[in-house]
Design a binder for these strands. Sequence first.
RNA 1: GGCCCCUUGGUCAAGCGGUUAAGACAUCGCCCUUUCACGGCGGUAUCAGGGGUUCGAGUCCCCUAGGGGUCACCA
Length: 481
Amino acid sequence: MSKVKVRFAPSPTGPLHIGGARSALFNYLEALNTGGELVLRIEDTDIERSDRKYEEEIIDSLRWMGIDWTEGVGAGGDNGPYRQTERLEIYNKYLEKLLDSDQAYECFCTAEELEAERQELLAKNEMVRYQGKCRYLSLEERQAKKDAGQKPAIRFKVPDNKVLVVNDLVRGQVTFESSNMGDFIIVKSDGIPTYNYAVVIDDVLMGITHVIRAEEHLSNTPGQLLIYDALNLKRPEFAHISLILGTDRQKMSKRHGATSIIQYREMGYLPEALFNYLALLGWSPEGEEEILSPSEIIERFSLKRVSKSPAVFDMDKLNWTNQQYIKKLSVEELTEMLRPYMDDSIYVNDLKGLSEYKLSLLIEVTREYLVCLKDISEHVAVFFTDIQYEDKALEVLQKPEVIEVLKLFVDNCPDFNEPEDVKKYLKDLMKANELKPKQVFMPIRCASSGQVHGPDLPVLLTIWGKEEVVRRINESIAKVS
RNA sequence: GGCCCCUUGGUCAAGCGGUUAAGACAUCGCCCUUUCACGGCGGUAUCAGGGGUUCGAGUCCCCUAGGGGUCACCA
């Protein structure tokens, strides 16, 4: 069996989104699992909407996620160029064959005519498809239109009564009939090929063995099959993977919130977490492990275990996955990754003012709350804001015996350099006054932070330092006295 | 509307004719603990409906229903 060669072929009309990333990922996984190759081709035939900046963005996003390719834009190769707009002569060569063999023809219909035809069919509740008006134009008629300055588009002549079977690796045999298809455009009037045509030529010329793409392309496939046949080209294998849906079960789109990879990157999701989560959307490994490294996923991946049914994108599970990866990081690694987010925080100066030791303490106790990196700012707030009294905390502070404890704490409070110092002092305090932990920890937490919940108390106090802690507690004493 | 695809808990899903129908997220409860979180333990919750085939059906076939995709000189 020959080597597997797959491709990811985005059109640079927007940033890489979740669905695209998942398609790229499955291609990548299939390639690496089989020892094959991944090609990156840019399908920029939509001149209006395509933009180089999106191409770069997509490439950045792919690399960030850890998806690599060995051929194509950004990697070179012998089958280039890899941008469709740079391959126009190639498409033309094949177009001539199609025209010469009478398998394609010029169409002079205008957008208005086409729209009228569509409306008419819609009104009659009939199948919307091109009726073939220009199919049998005589040479003279065509020439006359051209002389009049009309630029033709080229349509593919769909043969009658052909049964087209897509042997899909995930869906099995899917059958279509050519009678349900109208002659479709393969080259636009500006000379640029359409997707359905260019994709065939490119996949063949680039030696693609498996076309793995989203299910929305399944109904385009019979038309493409026709072109393979018309040109006598060998068909690749197809695998149409199901769509990713929003919680409303509609295809993921902008209105579902964050859909571009860049957004997840900015929020501070780790690439491995996204890689892991997306791989598990529509594919499941054997065994029960759910947290798998890229290499473990590559090793286990198989198209055979790809699901046919669409999957709803579940933010909760992504969050959980991300937390698992954050937990695996060392404090040093995490600190480095957190730097840009701390710089963006409104507490940037407070954070910068911390000693390295205190910063590591802070990150150590804060990490367990982090869902994604950008959350650092909100979880660090308690360290740097004035006391924000919650009702529950106030209730605690109202109790008369609590004031006594606070005073005791303040009166003999030593300097403390590390959490152990605080613990020791607290312990001594409890022992000397026969107090239980609960009678001490909660009052001090409430008095110093105004909150009934929060990070580990000894760490909290250590980061503030004695002066600040005493100041805060006195403030609370004054407030409730 | 035509064509095509899909249908196991709220979500991701395992399952490939015989199972007490896994597991994970979420949710609920308990434990751990100075609080929250983490962690540990446990609970609630699923085969869309109807016909077949079969000794036996989540698993095979058909129909219905629901959802989705696609019907562009977008990809």
